[in-house]
Amino acid sequence: MVVMMWVRFPLSLRNEKVLLFERGIDICHETGRLWWNRFCPLFAGDIRRQRVSRMRGFCHWHLVERCVKLDGEMGYLWRAVDHEGDMLESYVTRTRDKTAALTFMKKALDRHGSPEASPPIGCAVTALR
């Protein structure tokens, strides 16, 4: 309950301690933090898996490639971005390697289905209906 309250509502652990004390549960805020550290990654992974499975047939994502500077050196960032602008997958490499790009693309296709067709560069993008 502590972890779900912390995930769902923007409360501090001390505020949650007070709310739980009103319900007859007396815990230390540090206990709540330890539970959060243990269980939040499990909840986040479950939520991510559910979201991916729901979006599997939705197919509104695209692939973006960017040049980025990491520690003063140029690198390449490949991202799979959904229709809301959220990053689904990412991959960074120092070289523009064909095999790495194909591996990333296959992983993204397996997890999220085939992407929507994007208009050619220079074409005006019309509003989605």
Rank of each mutant, 00 (worst) to 15 (best):
M4I: 10
H112V: 03
R8Y: 02
V52W: 11
E73P: 00
Y91I: 00
F39K: 07
L11V: 08
E116P: 00
G75W: 07
R33V: 07
G75M: 06
E116S: 14
M5A: 04
D46I: 12
F104C: 02
L11C: 08
D26V: 12
W61R: 01
C67L: 09
C59R: 13
R33H: 09
L77S: 07
H112Q: 04
Y76H: 15
S12W: 06
H60C: 10
W36G: 06
W6Q: 08
G85M: 06
R96D: 02
D97A: 02
V68N: 05
A108L: 02
R66T: 08
D46Y: 14
E89G: 03
I121H: 10
G75R: 13
H112T: 03
M74L: 12
P10K: 11
L128A: 13
M87C: 14
R38E: 13
A44F: 12
T93A: 01
H112A: 00
C28V: 12
R111E: 11
T93H: 01
G122Y: 02
E30Y: 07
A101S: 07
E30N: 12
L102T: 08
V81W: 00
S114C: 08
D46P: 00
M55D: 12
P115D: 00
E30M: 09
C67T: 11
I25F: 10
G32P: 04
G85V: 05
R94I: 13
I47K: 04
L42Y: 03
H29T: 04
I27W: 03
F39C: 08
E84I: 01
S114N: 07
V7Q: 04
N15E: 15
T126L: 15
C40E: 14
M87Y: 03
A124I: 14
E22Q: 14
W6I: 11
D82C: 02
V92P: 01
T126H: 13
E84R: 14
M5H: 10
L128H: 13
T31Y: 06
E16A: 06
M87I: 15
C28T: 12
D110M: 15
H60G: 06
T31Q: 08
R111W: 03
P120S: 06
H83K: 14
D26S: 10
E116C: 10
F43L: 15
S114A: 10
W35K: 09
F104H: 02
S114R: 13
A101W: 11
P115R: 00
H83I: 11
F43C: 13
R49D: 10
E16Q: 15
F9Q: 11
G57Y: 05
G32Q: 03
R51T: 12
R54I: 11
L20M: 13
L77M: 06
L63E: 00
K107Y: 04
C123D: 13
C59N: 13
P41M: 08
K106Q: 07
K69G: 02
L102R: 09
R54S: 12
R66H: 05
I25Q: 09
E30D: 12
W35G: 03
Q50S: 07
P115M: 01
V92S: 05
T99F: 04
A80D: 07
E30T: 15
D86K: 08
V81N: 04
L70W: 06
R14V: 13
A100H: 11
M55L: 12
F58A: 08
V125L: 06
K17D: 04
G32W: 00
E16Y: 01
V81D: 01
S12G: 05
M5G: 02
Y91E: 04
D110N: 15
V92I: 15
L109N: 04
E16N: 15
R54E: 14
